[in-house]
Design a protein around this nucleic acid. Structure first.
Lengths: 344, 344
DNA sequence: AAACAAAATGTAAACGTTTACATTAGGAGT
DNA sequence: ACTCCTAATGTAAACGTTTACATTTTGTTT
């Protein structure tokens, strides 16, 4: 039989208010009384009902996490970053993702209006008008991930795609490559746009003219990488190096190179972005950009919790970009590279 | 300003009980009254407070999902299967995974005692005594995934690892291989044990003696696959085919083969288990066992919801195994295989 | 002992909903 | 018009906790 606060109070010979005070260390309770109450609570396995607490205190200690999809290690890394921090702070993580039956807007509306969550972490690579308005109207603290919200009233945490793309492109340039091609990510996708911008600016900074014929579009899938490579290498002017805007497309590039008997990096250098697990399985090991996904999740929830606790003003915009790092394999042409070889 | 049920009642000129009845279609409400109430609720964007509902109704419409880790597409597939079904049935998904700061037992205790979830889906590949006792004492409906709980009082959904391993081993035997090696999964891991059992029984059924020297252990990582292969091929008696107990170990096998200048399948055939995304990137394409992970999640939550709604007796044991399918690549020696080639 | 202040505790109500049971309204039959 | 029954509605309490404010107890000072 479950005991409630009334029963604990009866057994301790005090009022329910005193039990509450003792359990919450809130208000004055004589130490002796407090010890007695805690003892009786323990003997009876009593824990305050979190639902009743939520009703009274208007907080659920739950964070809503809205993801655009749930398909690979990127998403498990994000969830993991969030989950571990949630645990440290006695919070719970409610997950929801877009799928064929539901989109982000519906999910956000649901979370925002329902009182089930104290705040939301929203990953939305594309922000359309409707979503932007919702974010504005949000009455609950919200943190955006990887979002180019042109409205500067929001709080967001992003990977510094620009810097990563800039750096890796400069790395290619450092190898002496001049004809550098790029397989872009999906149009309108924030990450993709920033990676292209970093790529472009690195070329400009090094007085290399951007050649449109060396830029093809992709959609972050291996397949688009495969066909992007085929297109690039079918031209009269071929690139000597290719920046694939994510590693999965680089996987496709490797596959296309293999089936075309083109050697990496001897015939064409290839670099990627993301440092997904698979990239370390490619031969030669892919040179890529490492992105701190787990940390992204961790920082997002930390800031969100600060907003929830009014430790920071939820109406103040805040934006932080997590820097990336180069992981040097052999695919760019480096021979003494720093990335650990796969086995031994 | 948020309106509550009292305000809606006031505006509609009825009692709060009538508003509740109208919104819940519970008890008699004149149709005209009902329409009026729904109209006013809509105009005021009123939704019942789910926390208050939970307190009264003793249900949160939330499912707890406890995972042993959060590392790859296996877990996103499970979550996705659960999430999509949860949405269909107006339920929410609370995620928790084991990590360095927390183990499964703590998490289960937390979910079971706190009233935040109506039921739990627990994935635990190894069930130790403490956990087993907890599962027994569970006062809330629980569904196990991929668990060999020798206690038959539970509800579980598993992949039929035995059947998959049996079938794929028979497939190798069908190719004429007699010296068939295996790289096992982690000791005590339910999936791993069943896969070994299927492998063994297929050999026995086909009058092939199991040779201990052809069995090496691994831990489901690519690295253990790599070293397992090295060991197997360093022996005087080498296998002509290898069953890697999961695809990730098969990836390691491919890598080891490549660095040893051993050809797959000409020198040694290789098959895996899982049909992870990576397996389709290997050349030749890996022959493997497809496991319906999304479906596993879907079925688990469906049954759990039935238990929660008392549509099935939560005290009745139930176990279902989802069958697997063969995905034929070229790694076993098949030349006219059915798996789609990677790109055209 | 009396006065005052601070600590400790209790009472009552709040939070927002659902629902058992009481009461009222409406309809049907005589 | 009266009686009876059912539909519709309302009242009060429940759910389990927190907390504002009232009351009591304790400790200190004069």
């Amino acid at each position: 039989m479950e005991v409630n606060i009334k029963e604990i109070a009866r057994r301790a010979g005090v009022s329910i208010a005193t039990v509450s005070r003792a359990l919450n260390n809130n208000g004055s309770v004589r130490e002796e009384t407090r010890r007695k109450i805690l003892q009786i609570a323990k003997e009876n396995n009593y824990k305050p009902n979190p639902i009743a607490r939520s009703l009274t205190g208007k907080k659920t200690n739950t964070i809503g996490v809205i993801l655009p999809e749930l398909v690979d290690e990127f998403f498990t890394d994000i969830i993991r970053g969030i989950d571990e921090e949630a645990y440290q702070t006695d919070h719970y993580v409610m997950i929801s993702s877009s799928h064929s039956q539901r989109n982000i807007v519906q999910t956000l509306l649901e979370f925002m209006s329902s009182g089930r969550v104290d705040g939301v972490i929203l990953m939305a690579p594309k922000i359309r008008k409707e979503l932007s308005e919702l974010i504005q109207k949000s009455k609950r603290p919200m943190v955006l991930l990887n979002s180019c919200n042109s409205n500067n009233n929001s709080v967001c945490f992003n990977i510094n795609n620009y810097q990563g793309a800039f750096t890796i492109t400069e790395h290619l340039i450092g190898h002496g490559y001049k004809n550098i091609g790029m397989i872009q990510g999906p149009e309108g996708n924030c990450d993709a746009d920033e990676r292209f911008r970093g790529f472009s600016d690195a070329l400009l900074k090094n007085n290399i003219t951007i050649q449109d014929s060396l830029i093809v579009s992709g959609d972050f899938t291996a397949k688009s990488g495969y066909y992007g490579f085929i297109r690039l290498m079918s031209q009269s002017q071929k690139p000597e190096a290719i920046f694939a805007a994510n590693d999965m497309m680089a996987v496709g590039v490797y596959e296309a190179a293999r089936s075309s008997n083109i050697n990496i990096p001897q015939d064409v250098a290839v670099v990627g972005f993301d440092n997904i697990y698979m990239s370390r399985l490619l031969t030669p090991r892919l040179t890529t950009v490492h992105v701190p996904i787990v940390e992204l999740g961790t920082k997002a929830i930390r800031y969100l919790l600060k907003m929830i606790k009014n430790e920071v003003d939820a109406n103040l915009p805040y934006c932080e970009e997590l820097s990336t790092g180069l992981v040097i394999g052999g695919s760019c042409g480096c021979t003494n590279f720093s990335a650990p070889t796969f086995f031994k």
